[in-house]
Simulated scan of single mutants.
Amino acid sequence: MPDVPLHTGRLPVGDGNELYFEAAGNRRGPAVLWLHGGPGAGAMAGHRRRIDPRRQQAITFDHRGCGRSRPLAPDRLDLLDTNTTPAQIEDIEALRAHLGVERWMVTGASWGTTLALAYAQAHPERVSALGLFAVTTTSTAEVEWVTEAMGRVFPEVWHEFATAVERPPGERLVDAYARALRHPDAAVRRRAAAAWGRWEDVHVSLGPGWEPDPRWHTSPTRDVLATLVTHYWSHSGFGGDQILGRMDRLAGIPGVLIHGRRDISGPAVTAWELHRAWPGSELHIVDEGHGGPAASALLTRAIADSLG
């Protein structure tokens, strides 16, 4: 693919946050928004390769508190309570207005699918289509599965994970970690982030070709991810339990749901339930884990198909 023209910038969105964003391709063409995972993983350049740069534009941004946006979540823990899904929906709308986009195709992976669905349900008039892989809604049940029940699959690693932070009887692990990652002692926060990262690296390890993710072993990226993931998961994604029941709001919006059969950290049942509640959507279950080349190729095809 030839070099894609790239426009970058920073957008103040309130609460002391400034978002890094980028737009690539034909700035007069149909827009395709990419929402990254995590929460807190930050955007990478791969979204640019999924468009036809002569006819489309690819847009992404680092969500508040992570990546090249500022401030980073661990640096301003006093702002963490303002970092919510409704706030991020407002951020997306602010970016859309700033770039002069009327409607866009919204794409994303993992946490990005939760945010994409929540945004589309809040602003269906702004969404032309959805393309999602490694599908999650960050519901209470999904969080319980990935932090508690999945210990039955990886019992020895989960034991280390469960005993790495202090927690009173009855406290959920995700809440204990969220609390530890806001502890005034930086050493407590670092130990919690490292333990959380080890568990994250293991529970996505059953997919073909898996390799350890360096982001979970490199500070400050690891600390940003652990802080934001536990913050959002301890609150069930600030509305994740409502997403499935609001799929009627997407009536008339085409969508593609792509999920890995071997994605044990996020079983395919979530994508299947969303598909059943969303007439006109397509469901593709591929022989991969939490994302992979087949899922990415299907998303690229969906983006191309959106041009008609």
Rank of each mutant, 00 (worst) to 15 (best):
Met1Trp: 00
Pro2Val: 04
Asp3Thr: 14
His7Leu: 11
Thr8Cys: 07
Val13Ile: 14
Glu18Gly: 10
Leu19His: 05
Glu22Cys: 09
Arg28Cys: 11
Ala31Pro: 07
Val32Asp: 07
Val32Cys: 13
His36Leu: 12
Gly37Met: 06
Ala41Cys: 08
Ala43Asp: 04
Arg48Phe: 03
Arg49Thr: 10
Pro53Arg: 02
Arg54Pro: 02
Gln57Tyr: 12
Ala58Trp: 07
Ala58Ser: 11
Ile59Met: 02
Thr60Trp: 02
Asp62His: 11
Arg64Gly: 15
Cys66Thr: 15
Arg68Trp: 01
Arg68Met: 06
Ser69His: 13
Pro71Thr: 01
Pro74Asp: 01
Asp75Gln: 14
Arg76Gln: 11
Leu79Asp: 09
Leu80Ser: 07
Leu80Gly: 02
Asn83Lys: 00
Asp91Met: 05
Glu93Arg: 11
Ala94Lys: 13
Ala97Gly: 01
Leu99Val: 04
Gly100Phe: 03
Val101Thr: 12
Arg103Phe: 08
Arg103Glu: 10
Met105Ala: 07
Thr107Ala: 15
Ala109His: 07
Trp111Ser: 00
Gly112Leu: 07
Gly112Met: 02
Thr113Ile: 02
Thr114Lys: 09
Leu115Ser: 03
Tyr119Ala: 08
Ala120Leu: 03
Gln121Lys: 02
Ala122Pro: 12
His123Arg: 15
Pro124Cys: 09
Glu125Asn: 01
Leu132Arg: 01
Ala134Asp: 07
Ala134His: 05
Val135Gly: 06
Thr140Lys: 01
Thr140Gln: 03
Val143Gly: 02
Thr147Ala: 02
Glu148Ile: 02
Arg152Lys: 12
Val153Gly: 05
Val157Ile: 10
Trp158His: 12
Ala162Asn: 01
Thr163Val: 11
Ala164Asp: 14
Val165Tyr: 10
Glu166Gln: 13
Glu166Val: 12
Glu166Gly: 14
Leu173Phe: 08
Tyr177Asn: 00
Arg179Cys: 12
Arg182Ala: 13
His183Met: 09
Asp185Phe: 00
Arg189Ile: 03
Ala193Cys: 08
Gly197Phe: 06
Asp201Leu: 11
His203Glu: 13
Leu206Asp: 03
Gly207Lys: 12
Pro208Tyr: 06
Asp213Leu: 08
Asp223Leu: 05
Ala226Thr: 09
Thr227Lys: 09
Thr230Asp: 07
His231Leu: 08
Asp241Glu: 04
Ile243Leu: 13
Leu244Trp: 06
Met247Tyr: 04
Leu250Thr: 13
Gly252Asn: 01
Arg262Asn: 04
Ser265Trp: 08
Pro267Leu: 08
Pro267Arg: 12
Ala271Leu: 08
Ala271Gln: 10
Glu273Ala: 14
His275Pro: 04
Arg276Phe: 04
Pro279Gln: 06
Gly280His: 11
His284Val: 11
Asp287Val: 14
Glu288Leu: 13
Gly291His: 04
Gly291Ser: 10
Pro293Ala: 12
Pro293Gly: 12
Ala295Ser: 15
Ser296Leu: 05
Leu298Val: 10
Leu298Thr: 08
Leu307Asp: 15
